[in-house]
Computed example of a mutant assay.
Amino acid sequence: MTRSWSIILPWATPPVKPNGGHGNVYAHAAKVKRTRQTMGLLARQAGIPPLAACRVELTWFVPDRIKRDVDNLTWTLKPLCDALAGTKAWDHKIVPDDTPEFMVKPMPAIIYRPGEPKEMILTITEIPCTT
Rank of each mutant, 00 (worst) to 15 (best):
P96T: 00
D97V: 02
V95Q: 03
R36L: 08
A30E: 13
M39R: 08
K67G: 01
R65N: 15
G115L: 11
A43G: 03
T99C: 02
K78F: 00
R113P: 03
T131R: 10
P10G: 03
L80M: 14
D69R: 14
P49L: 00
V32T: 06
L84P: 11
R3N: 10
L122W: 06
V32A: 02
P15N: 08
V95T: 05
P79G: 08
F61C: 03
D91V: 02
L84A: 04
F61T: 03
D69V: 12
R44Q: 14
D97L: 00
W60F: 06
P128W: 01
A29F: 02
S4Q: 15
G20Y: 09
P96E: 07
N19P: 00
L80V: 07
E119G: 05
A89Y: 00
R34C: 02
T123F: 02
P100Q: 12
A30C: 03
R68A: 13
W5R: 07
T59Q: 12
H28M: 05
A43N: 04
M39G: 07
S6L: 01
I111P: 03
W11M: 02
A43Y: 00
I8V: 15
G40T: 05
D98H: 11
S4M: 10
K31F: 04
G86N: 06
L122G: 05
K93R: 15
P18S: 11
R3G: 04
P100W: 12
V16I: 13
F102I: 04
A83E: 05
R68S: 13
R65Y: 10
Q45I: 06
I127C: 01
P50E: 11
I94M: 08
W75V: 09
P15F: 10
V104W: 06
M107R: 15
L58S: 12
P14N: 15
D71N: 15
S4T: 14
V62S: 12
L77N: 05
L122C: 11
P63L: 07
D97I: 03
V95F: 00
D69H: 13
A52H: 02
Q37K: 13
V62E: 14
I66H: 02
W60Y: 05
V56Y: 01
E119N: 07
V25T: 10
E57R: 14
S6V: 01
A109T: 09
A27E: 09
G86W: 02
T123S: 01
I48T: 04
P10V: 10
I110E: 14
H22F: 09
A52Q: 05
L9A: 13
S6A: 11
R36P: 07
S6H: 02
V70M: 10
A43W: 01
P18R: 14
T99Q: 05
V16A: 08
I127F: 01
N19M: 13
P128K: 04
L84V: 03
A46K: 14
T125C: 00
R34D: 12
A83R: 07
T38G: 11
G40M: 08
V95C: 01
C81L: 00
T74D: 14
A27I: 10
G20R: 11
P63Q: 09
A29E: 07
T59L: 07
A30M: 08
P100H: 12
I127E: 01
T130S: 00
P50M: 06
D98M: 07
W90Y: 09
V95S: 01
S6R: 12
P14K: 13
K31V: 04
P18I: 14
